[in-house]
């Protein structure tokens, strides 16, 4: 019987700067899920995901994407991964279409397929009318959508988004959410960090709570409610309870 390979498998991941930012974190995310990572500021969410994306080298631990070892074969891992940072990084002097052509070139895509995909994505994200305008005049929301289109053009198997909805107006946020849900329905795995708990509650299949560089809870909203002992509570209540429990546990440990 063949074992189903998870989209992301993290084992005992550690990274320290002045203090431990990620402290022995382990996390497994199955294929075709929409997962949200929650946590207070400085909890280690972004650091964890930056290590998954190959932007930071871990001190220790293992990361694999769809069975590909990120540390042993980073190029192969990057080929099937997309990373969208919270601050949209696009080139002011390129148009969205030129940006997508550049990204497609970096991922070594077939040019014909890349152009078709670019048209499709710009249609989905409402960028088609601005395809040939330089990004320098774009709002943050527009730039975020260009960056997202860049992340999706090479048809990744795993998409990691760091605060993807920050700064988006309601219409743009709806477009982004629709696109992400569509991708999940096609079998793509999406992981996002967010501070907007309502979004996480409504969109994510599973939730992970990170605090002090560790995964303190993980599961569906109902499973998290059970863990927090708060039946019928909102995600906000559950989240605050879990984070507070972790802080108490750390204080006891320190004492």
């Amino acid at each position: 019987m063949s074992q189903i390979v998870p989209a992301l498998n993290i084992q005992a991941l550690r990274k320290s700067f002045d203090r431990p930012a990620v402290d022995g974190l382990s996390l497994t995310i199955p294929t075709g899920e929409f997962d949200a990572l929650l946590g207070p500021n400085g909890a280690g969410k972004t650091t964890t995901l930056r290590m998954v994306a190959g932007l930071l080298a871990p001190d220790s631990g293992d990361i694999s994407i769809c069975g590909v070892d990120v540390l042993a074969d980073p190029i192969a891992a990057k080929q099937i991964l997309a990373w969208v940072p919270d601050e949209p990084m696009v080139y002011d002097k390129l148009t969205p279409l030129e940006y997508l052509e550049f990204v497609a070139g970096l991922w070594g895509m077939d040019a014909t397929r890349a152009f078709e995909r670019a048209q499709e994505l710009m249609g989905w994200l409402g960028l088609a009318a601005h395809a040939n305008e330089r990004c320098e005049g774009f709002s943050k929301g527009m730039r975020q959508k260009v960056a997202l289109a860049g992340a999706l053009i090479h048809e990744p198997k795993l998409i990691i988004l760091d605060e993807p909805l920050t700064g988006l107006d309601a219409g743009s946020a709806r477009q982004v959410k629709t696109v992400l849900r569509r991708l999940v329905s096609e079998g793509v795995t999406v992981i996002m960090t967010t501070h907007i708990l309502e979004v996480a509650e409504r969109m994510a299949d599973r939730l992970g709570v990170i605090a002090n560089g560790q995964l303190v809870a993980e599961g569906t909203l109902d499973e998290l409610r059970d863990k927090a002992g708060q039946d019928g509570s909102s995600l906000e209540d559950v989240f605050l309870q879990l984070v507070a429990d972790d802080a108490d546990a750390n204080k006891e440990l320190a004492a």
């Binding site: 190029i75 080929q79 990373w83």
Partner: peptide, 8 residues
């Protein structure tokens, strides 16, 4: 981030 996360 884009360049670093690309397969190059």
């Amino acid at each position: 981030d884009l360049v670093l996360s690309a397969p190059i």
